[in-house]
Structures are given as structure tokens and as C-alpha cells.
Design a protein around this nucleic acid. Structure first.
Lengths: 313, 313
DNA sequence: GACGCTTACGTTCGTCGTAACTATT
DNA sequence: AATAGTTACGACGAACGTAAGCGTC
């Protein structure tokens, strides 16, 4: 048994049981991968993959267990590399953040400005994607942390921690009557054509829930993937917009009017996601604390390792 | 980086930083081990061990982290082997139990009799030792489960689960006056020379505590490592004995009288110890449930993996 | 017929063991 | 002087890549 074999089965499983593709991804030859997988299966005395003739079509029951373990081992090897990098040069390295548009555009800039000042030798990488993609980047090791708002809590091997609570505001052209509503109500909003986020994104479900709870059906004329698109169309007076409060900047957005709507919707929570049992560089903890000061290194470490409490039944 | 290197550093650390000894234990040459360790250190860019000239004298700070990770990886590899064995032949294999005299002699026999009947193809191994040794056998993989009563809860990588509560009785020669005490008291016991367990063992601390709590200082004339020795000397009327209740058998021990003493001492708890995150064969779960019916497979699995709950702060 | 996995074979690279050397106690 | 670790070197073996063969879609 060796590490290559574990990498091979892991990659083959990840790539939908396509050996050739996995071989390419690992920069090696397809026969080599096939052979090593067989050797491993022979050594363990089990079949990991189900074959139809010469094709792999499924993962066996023991194979799934083996793949789970292999995944953990490979994760730990990543950790080893991290440990090496950390101690050989504490303040230099790479920080890869996978996140959604809203976070990258509005929440992260001040945090990252401070971070870059503090750690000038850390190369920052920002990868944008939808919440699902963001999680998977963390799980396969291409990103260190994920930051997103919803559907981030569904993965077994992802530890998620709440960072910030936020709510929404309504924006409209400066003279729009909605801006003079005192107090602002859902009924008032529903009187106008609405522009807001796409279903899969950024707390859209909270918006749906609020209207549904009052039995109102708003006229949604446009759904967008990001705040800037919403602002653009609101500026064209296509409708009024429901937006993350943090996305409105009185200076940059002086062509638009804003009225807070926090009392109308359930607040949403932005979460940070980390690979379970990951070993993180010191500056990663610093970044997390910069983004969410309540998340101290100690707390994050405890969460990463699943608490580790003794089970005294 | 490869698995051998991890095995090497792990073994060197385990053997008190003696490379030659580690090489012997791994059936390889000492220069090979030295070289691989250096290669690994080179690759990670850190020193794992502190050298004084040519001798290794300590583990560096990053080295400790690396060793921890290596230990986990090697544990997972053990798990892989187990998975292979389990699925290639479900009901055959090895069950290695590390335990103390009292458990092996009095608590385990009926459980193991049933187990052997149910799993005739599992080779049973019983390793006797003191509680410390017992734990270490589990941690280094030479035993699957540890069963002991105290000081078993001190290891980070050992998951312990309470199995059985038990208490003590007093034994004496058949016509000894202590047997007619109604009710039995600590003061009555302290009137006679006492024979009981050695300090390091089987709930001796509960006995000490009881007497100390009443300000009594009993005359202990002999301390033994196991129940059989105690019974032997009680039979010779050297004194009265305080014994685990389960060690007295009215038939086999008809040459001795017994009176229960559960109301005088705090009860002790026998615990089972397992390597954290171990992957256990099906029959191991069956054995555990046979020994402690409340410990179902599900519960043991949850405890093994540290609970795995999401940390929602 | 195109794609995908296996078998076969020769080359290369890495690992291991022996032996000689050096340092520590 | 004895014990412990390093350096040097040669031999073996495992893994890899290429090329050809066989199945499946």
C-alpha cells in the first residue's frame, strides 16, 4: 500500500469513475493508475470499484469505506505540507478564499486590505463561485476557506462557523415614493415591481419566506446573481430593489435612494467553511479573526476537530 | 513524501529518539531510516528532531505537529487493513483484548464463551497488563480493545466508554465474626488485619477514600495484584479480604465466607477503551455489546468519531 | 469506429542494505 | 572503547510510460 494508490482511487472516484481522466489530472499514464488500483484491491482483498466488463460503473460498499479513509489520509497529508510551510516561513505563503460575489465585493475588501498590510508576503487568491462550488473548492483543497451565506452547511467534511448577521434594504430611484414610507411594510414593497437575487443565492429564501408569511405575492420582474446587476436595473427604474444592506454605499450609489428593511426580513448569517480536521496556517486564523472577531484561534481549532470531547455516557 | 517516512519518524519518536532501535523494530537498516527522515525534513522544509551533533535529543515544535499528524495517518492505514479484512471474510479474523487480571479472570469468561460460540473463526487474544500497559497496547495497535477500571481516561487518543458498575465484598474464613456483623460497618472491618489490592489497581482508591472519609486507618497487612492471591491468604486466616464482588464464587470459594460491602464504598466503573477514529470489525462491536449491552454499535461509532456534531456557536 | 480499460515489456528512478567513516559518551 | 549516526555505493525492485490488445457503447 502506498500514497499514490490512495491518490489514484480518490481521484478516480472524484472524476466519476473515469480512470483516463483521473490519470490525466494526476499527470501520469492511465495503465499505471489501473494497475495500482488493482494492486491495492489485491492487497486489501476487496474490490473497491464495481466493473462491468472493463468499465468501472460503481463503488462497492467496502470501496466507499476505503475511499472515505483515503480522503482523510490525503487531507492529513495536505496538513503536513501546511505545517512545513508554516514553520519554515511563518508570514509567507498563500491564502485562498472561495466566496460569492456579494462577499467578495462588499464584505471582504476592508478585511483583506488590513490583512495584506499585516501579511505582505502572503499571496492572496480569491475564487468566486456559487455556494456549492465554493464548498467544493475547500473540500478538494484548492481553497483554504469558504465564505458564503447559505446551503453551506450540507457537507459532512465541512466545518462551518457563523461570522456575521446581516439584513436587507430597499433601494429605488431617488424620488421614488417607497423611500417615504414610514414605517416601511411588506405590503408597500409589494405594490411595485421588484428586483432581487436569484433563488439559489444570498438569502433569497428569507425574502420569499417573509412575503409568503403575510400571504403576499410580490411582482418579481428580474432576479440577478449579484448586487451590482440589481442596482443597475433599479437605476433604470425597472423596479425597486431588495438588497443586502452592506451593498449600498451612500457615496458610490448616490444615484439611488435607500431605506432600511431589517424589520421585515429574518436576518441571514454569513458563514465561514473549513475542511474538517484541516491544519491551518497562522495567518489563516488571523484572517478569520479579522473577518469575524469573535472567532478566535482557539474556538476555530476546537470546531475543526469536532470538539474532541470525551463521551461519558 | 511517502508512508515509510511517516512510519520511521513515528517509530523513532516512540522509541525515545533512538534511530537504531526504531530501525530494528521496523526490520530495516539504521542508515535507511536516518536518510528517509532527512529527506522528509528536507521536503517539508523543517526539522522534526533536534540534534546534538549526531544524536537526536528532542522533538521540535513543528516536529510534534508532524508526528501527531503522522500518527493519525498511520492509524487510518490500520483502519484500511481492517476494512479489507472485514469485507473479505466477515466472520473470521482476530480479536485482541488487553485487560487486567480481574476482568480476564472474572468478568470476561462468560462473555468470551458466548463470543467464541458465535464467531468460531475469530482468533481470540487476551493480553494481561496493568491499566497503563493496557491502554498503550490499544494505542499502538497491538490490541483492539482495552478493558480496565481506572486511570484509563488520561489519553487523548483513547476513547473510553463506561461498561459496568461494581462494588466490593468482604471475605473471611467461614467462622470469622466479621461475617455476622449486621449491618457491616467500616469500623468493624478496621478491627481486623486487612488484605486487599495494590495501590495502582482495580479501584483501590475507592477503598482508601472510604476509610479516610471516616478518619479510620485500617491495618493493611498485605496488598496483592490480583483477587486470587487475596483469597489464598484470607484462606490462611492472615486477615480478612476486601474484594471485587464478582471475584467471589459461592461454589468455587466454599472454603471462604462472604458478606457484601457495597454500601460502604463508592462503586467503581469498568471502562472499555478504543483507539480514537478506529475502524472496527463487525465482531468487535458484537463483543462490546456482549460485554456491555447498552453500548450498541451506533453509540460506539459516535463516540469513536468524537461525536462529529456541527459547531454552531 | 471511437472510447476506455487491460496486458506486456523495457527503462528509470527510488529504496534498501552493506561497509567504511565520524562523532558522542 | 563502545555506542550511535552519517556518508558512500552498489543491487534490487517497484513504478512508470509506451505500445499493442480486447470490450463496451
Amino acid at each position: 500500500m502506498n500514497l499514490q494508490q490512495l491518490r489514484y482511487i480518490h481521484e478516480v472516484a472524484r472524476r466519476g469513475l473515469n480512470v483516463s481522466e483521473a490519470a490525466d489530472a494526476l499527470f501520469t499514464s492511465q495503465p499505471g493508475v489501473s494497475k495500482q488500483i488493482k494492486l491495492l484491491e489485491g492487497e486489501l482483498g476487496i474490490e473497491i470499484f464495481v466493473r462491468h466488463g472493463k468499465r468501472m460503473v460503481a463503488v462497492t460498499e467496502p470501496g466507499q469505506v476505503v475511499l472515505d479513509i483515503a480522503g482523510r489520509v490525503l487531507g492529513e497529508l495536505d496538513n503536513l505540507q501546511q505545517v512545513g510551510a508554516e514553520f519554515s516561513s511563518e508570514d509567507a505563503g498563500r491564502l485562498s478564499i472561495a466566496t460569492t460575489h456579494t462577499q467578495a465585493r462588499y464584505a471582504l475588501p476592508p478585511v483583506l486590505r488590513d490583512f495584506m498590510r499585516r501579511y505582505p508576503h502572503v499571496r492572496l487568491e480569491l475564487h468566486q463561485g456559487n455556494p456549492r462550488q465554493v464548498c467544493e473548492m475547500v473540500l478538494d483543497g484548492s481553497a483554504d476557506v469558504a465564505i458564503a451565506t447559505e446551503s453551506i452547511a450540507e457537507y459532512e467534511d465541512l466545518v462551518t462557523l457563523p461570522c456575521r448577521q446581516w439584513n436587507r434594504c430597499v433601494i429605488a430611484t431617488p424620488k421614488h415614493p417607497i423611500l417615504r414610507e414610514q414605517p416601511l411594510t411588506l405590503d408597500a414593497i409589494a405594490r411595485y415591481p421588484l428586483i432581487t437575487y436569484d433563488d439559489a443565492f444570498t438569502g433569497r429564501s428569507q425574502i420569499n419566506k417573509a412575503f409568503l408569511g403575510r400571504g403576499i405575492k410580490p411582482k418579481i420582474v428580474l432576479t440577478a446573481l449579484d448586487s451590482d446587476v440589481i442596482k443597475t436595473y433599479v437605476g433604470m427604474d425597472l423596479g425597486i430593489g431588495i438588497l443586502t444592506r452592506m451593498a449600498y454605499d451612500p457615496v458610490a450609489d448616490r444615484g439611488l435612494g435607500m431605506i432600511d428593511a431589517a424589520h421585515l426580513f429574518e436576518s441571514s448569517t454569513t458563514r465561514i467553511g473549513l475542511r474538517r480536521r484541516a491544519w491551518l496556517r497562522g495567518y489563516v486564523y488571523a484572517f478569520i479573526e479579522g473577518f469575524a472577531p469573535q472567532l478566535t484561534r482557539k474556538m476555530v481549532e476546537i470546531a475543526l476537530n469536532g470538539g474532541g470531547e470525551d463521551y461519558q455516557l
